[in-house]
Design a protein around this nucleic acid. Structure first.
Length: 118
DNA sequence: CTTCTGACTGAAA
DNA sequence: GTTTCAGCCAGAA
């Protein structure tokens, strides 16, 4: 999958919506693609959230993309970072232990925007 | 137009 | 616990 060559206004709005939610994830906590999709009203699938994350590095404001993982707590997006270890390093730097691409104690570190933000 | 792919997920076996 | 399968929507060839 790739970022649209000529993003439409709708695209940019969608990217910004996703990025805004990701920025609300506190340090030391993580969320999932599906949780973000659900918070945005389930009008977009989880895959579309992942798609929007590809544009995270081109966003004007910082997006903590390392806090977004899949429902199993796996760092499925690590290959999209500058280096294969950047995602894990960023998580561990804020106190989230990772082993074998898996966030430890994922269940208690999970931050659901739908319940946390209302 | 068809087909394949993907930072995904929930259900079913 | 596992593997498999079908939806999901956008983009590229």
């Amino acid at each position: 999958m790739s970022i649209p060559r000529n993003p439409t206004e709708a695209h940019r709005n969608f990217f910004q919506d996703v990025h805004e939610v990701v920025r609300l994830v506190p340090e030391g906590r993580v969320t999932t693609y599906g949780a973000i999709a659900h918070y945005l009203g389930a009008r977009h699938g989880a895959r579309m959230v992942g798609w929007a994350m590809m544009a995270a590095h081109t966003a004007n404001e910082y997006v903590p993309a390392h806090r977004v993982i899949n429902r199993n707590g796996l760092l499925t997006g690590k290959q999209h970072f500058a280096t294969p270890t950047a995602m894990q390093a960023a998580l561990e730097a804020e106190g989230v232990p990772v082993q074998d691409d898996q966030v430890q104690d994922f269940k208690t570190r999970f931050w659901d925007p739908s319940t946390e933000l209302g």
